[in-house]
């Protein structure tokens, strides 16, 4: 840690061992931080829904008959759960995949280009968040039959 010799600096809050309830509501996370935590959240979400993803793969490629079951999940639903709920789950997965892949490519770009400046961190975070949400909106509109 570097000791700064300027005594006129204002006292900033210091966060160690962040408390989820006390600190997080007032913690102003920079945009690059949002990309980072959402990278984790999206990855964990896809990890938990992996069986559902493989079920979709299974039913969509195995046979004509299973393909019909795959389509019916999103139109008729399953059991007491309506089809739109599964569309929402699919939309969450679409967002998770898009965010994860774009944030991942951002990481790879930083690795190969040594693009580790504060400015690039912020501008690429804006690109990542905008692009992932815009593509999610476009695909979501398609999923819910808006066009």
């Amino acid at each position: 840690m570097t000791e700064l010799a300027t005594p006129s600096r204002p006292q900033r809050p210091e966060f160690r061992n962040i408390n989820a309830f006390k600190d997080l509501p007032t913690y102003r996370l920079p945009l690059a931080g949002w990309v980072s935590i959402l990278h984790r959240v999206s990855g964990a979400l896809m990890f938990l829904l992996l069986p559902f993803i493989i079920w979709l793969f299974d039913t969509s490629v195995t046979s004509e008959y299973s393909f019909a079951r795959f389509s019916a999940l999103f139109s008729a639903g399953a059991g007491f759960v309506p089809g739109w709920f599964f569309k929402l789950v699919a939309l969450a997965l679409i967002w998770a995949y898009l965010h994860h892949i774009i944030a991942g490519i951002r990481h790879l770009w930083m690795d190969v280009a040594h693009a580790v400046s504060k400015e690039f961190g912020r501008s690429s975070a804006i690109v990542t968040l905008t692009l992932s949400m815009a593509l999610t909106a476009v695909l979501g509109a398609k999923l819910f039959g808006l066009y």
């Binding site: 969509s60 490629v61 195995t62 046979s63 004509e64 393909f67």
Partner: peptide, 9 residues
């Protein structure tokens, strides 16, 4: 449809 999608894999 099913044919095109399964055909990819």
């Amino acid at each position: 449809g099913y044919e095109a999608w399964a055909g990819i894999f």
